[in-house]
Simulated scan of single mutants.
Amino acid sequence: MGSGTNKHVGVFTRQLKSGECLYITFFYQDERCREALPGLNPELKGDWDFAFGLKKEIERMITLGKFNYGDYFPNSPKAKKFAAKSTATVLDYLNDYVKYGRKRGLSVSTIEGYEKAIRALSPLHHIKAANLTPANVKQLVKDSTVSLKTMRNRLSVLNSAMNEAVVDGVLPLNPCTSVKPHQYMDKVEKVSTRGQHEDVDPFKPKEIEAILNACRNQPERHLLTVLFYTGIRPSEAAALQWIDVDLINEEIKVCEAVIWDSTNKKAITKGTKTSSGNRVIELPPLALEALKSQKEVTGHGKYVFIEPRSRKQLTGAAQLRKNIWIPVLKKSGVRYRHPYQARHTFATMLISKGRNLWWVADQMGHDGPEMLFRHYGNYIKEHDLKLTRKSR
């Protein structure tokens, strides 16, 4: 292989069966490309000049974002490769992002979060990635009725996927970066004028009583009692094993959660939501009695709570909600709330009783009381006011 003079950097010759041939080399979409120029004669200086000029023209078109590989080298294998990238849709890049996430070993719940976001981005699926504009993203935001947090989560997935399109040279700039969703969405107050966090809607004592009385069997009553009086997450309750229940010392150890892998159609046991989620919960009397009674039902097995009909381990929060929570609440006549509100109920009960906030945070699986102030500030303030009135 021969190379040109300093004047012809990036131009070289290669000996083929048919004879010596001129080549040019350049970088496109972070890839080094070498292409033959079979119509030129390596013996002629003018052809070397032409090859070098062609290389400079290609590099200029790449810089301007106007280079089409097939226009210059229609028979090159790389032309087909880059053409496939240029015709790829937004959905193609989103799906690739999930595929790479699986290769990186991301958790099942994270992947399912990505897939949920991708489904919500369906208005953009058909658009070629190369044609996606900030205006398209802006319109998606304006047409949405979800919360700002949800929209930001969705755009985070889209932004990461479109970064790959930028790397591939399909887009000169990521169209997501210039769109600020808060500028186009109605402001949603997380905290009401009464100081209540919109995500927190705890059950009152009479409602809890009605729900427990509506349970169709004792195992259901035991499970919901533990949810209300330990603050354990539904996915953590599904993973709770008898080896983690200490009835003598009146405590349970929470270290795992069960989630449903919708791709592989099976339950997956993983670690808790956060590292601080690994915790030991002190059992109040009602929860303790519920677990003692449950011991007589499932104590011979591995898991504390099972699906009553199948007699198998719960497959996660979704199954608990569908098969147990919804039917029981419907029967009880209590206004429907998500099962997670049982956890909020537990927190507000402890706060109302004046328990130490660091201890409450520990029982809930938080690093400290900051999360409590963020979600339950109104209840903390209300309790403090009661103490102030008593001290007068």
Rank of each mutant, 00 (worst) to 15 (best):
L291K: 00
G231I: 08
T269D: 09
V328G: 02
W260M: 05
A267I: 13
F305S: 02
I252T: 05
Q294E: 09
G299C: 07
Q241S: 13
L286Q: 03
I281K: 00
I351A: 07
K330F: 03
R321D: 08
R343W: 09
R321F: 07
Q341C: 13
S352K: 15
R335F: 11
E251R: 15
G301K: 15
N323G: 05
R321A: 10
F305R: 03
P339M: 02
H222Q: 08
K330P: 02
S276C: 12
V226F: 07
S262F: 13
V226T: 08
I232M: 14
R321L: 09
K253T: 11
T298G: 09
L223Y: 04
P327D: 10
R343Q: 11
A318H: 14
C255N: 14
I232C: 13
A239Y: 05
L227K: 10
D246W: 00
S235C: 15
R335N: 14
N278P: 01
P219C: 05
R337H: 13
K353H: 12
R355I: 14
I259M: 02
K265I: 10
Q294S: 01
S293M: 07
E282K: 15
K312L: 14
I232H: 03
G299W: 04
I281G: 03
G316M: 05
D246Y: 05
I232A: 12
W325Y: 11
R216K: 12
E256G: 00
T298H: 05
I351P: 02
G271I: 10
W260V: 02
T230L: 04
L288K: 06
A287W: 04
G277Y: 07
D261R: 14
Y303S: 09
G354L: 13
A287L: 01
